Computed example of a mutant assay.
Amino acid sequence: MTTSPRLVPVTPDNFDAVVGVKVRPDQEFAVSPVLKSLAEAYVHPEVAWPRAIVDGDRVVGFVMAFLDIDWRQDGGTDIRSGLWRLNIDAGEQGHGYGKFAVHAVAEEIRRRGGTRLTVTWHPGEHGPEGFYLGLGFRPTGEQSDGETVADLEL
């Protein structure tokens, strides 16, 4: 039976599997653990959109979007939505789940009227820069907490 990946809410039934998602050790510098992401979603429910990435009955990853935040901290306004976290389990990488999750978040942002998807990443040898550039993200020239900021026009 062939299945297609899908995004589902994090629930009591899948919580343990979702927090069990672990990236490869050489990628841990680039993304926070799922448990931290869920804690951030709990304290920022107005902007966080956490989802389990599921294929069949298996949780293969986790994605969390931020929706309609004011990006600027200087009193101006720059409303953005984008990827806050993307964690694909080490044993599930290379099967297209990350690409699927980015496209699903892009569709959710489009559905809400957004026209761009923002992402940040830590530079580094095993970081996600090549992945995001390959999906069409373009660096904006900005830095956020030492991370590269990039946008994808939707």
Rank of each mutant, 00 (worst) to 15 (best):
A52D: 08
A52G: 04
A39P: 03
L38C: 01
D70I: 12
W49E: 12
G76V: 09
R6A: 07
F66S: 01
M64E: 15
S144Y: 06
L7D: 06
W84A: 09
A101F: 10
V34L: 03
Q143N: 09
R24T: 08
G61F: 10
S37M: 06
P45S: 12
G82W: 14
D70Y: 04
K22I: 09
K22G: 01
G114W: 04
P33Y: 03
D57K: 08
V63R: 07
E28C: 03
N87K: 07
K36S: 12
V47K: 14
M64H: 08
R58K: 14
L154K: 04
V19Y: 01
V43R: 13
S37L: 05
A90R: 12
N14Y: 10
T148E: 08
T148L: 06
Q143D: 12
A41C: 08
V31F: 03
L67Q: 05
V149N: 03
I53V: 06
A150H: 03
A101D: 05
E92R: 06
T3F: 06
A17P: 00
R138K: 15
W121N: 03
G61L: 10
D70F: 04
E28T: 14
T77V: 15
P9S: 13
E125I: 15
S37D: 15
V23C: 00
S37N: 15
G20L: 08
P50N: 11
Y132T: 03
K22N: 05
H95K: 14
M1N: 04
R58L: 14
E153M: 14
L35F: 10
L86M: 06
P50A: 08
V34R: 02
E129H: 03
G113E: 02
A48R: 15
K22V: 11
T140Q: 06
M64Q: 15
A39W: 13
G98W: 04
A106E: 14
G113S: 07
T77R: 14
P9N: 10
L7M: 09
R6W: 02
L135A: 08
V59S: 01
D16Y: 12
V23E: 01
G141L: 13
A150L: 10
R112F: 08
A52K: 08
G134E: 00
H95D: 04
G134L: 03
I88C: 00
P139F: 09
N87P: 04
F29D: 12
A150S: 10
E108V: 02
A104I: 09
V47C: 06
L67H: 09
S37C: 15
E142Q: 12
L154M: 10
V60Q: 02
Q143C: 05
G146L: 13
M1C: 04
S32C: 05
L35E: 11
V59H: 02
V43N: 04
S37T: 07
R85Q: 14
V10E: 08
R112S: 10
E108H: 09
R111Y: 11
G114F: 02
G134T: 02
W49F: 13
L67K: 04
E147N: 07
G136P: 01
K99G: 13
V21I: 14
W49M: 11
D13G: 07
G20A: 13
E142G: 00
P9T: 12
Y97Q: 06
D74R: 06
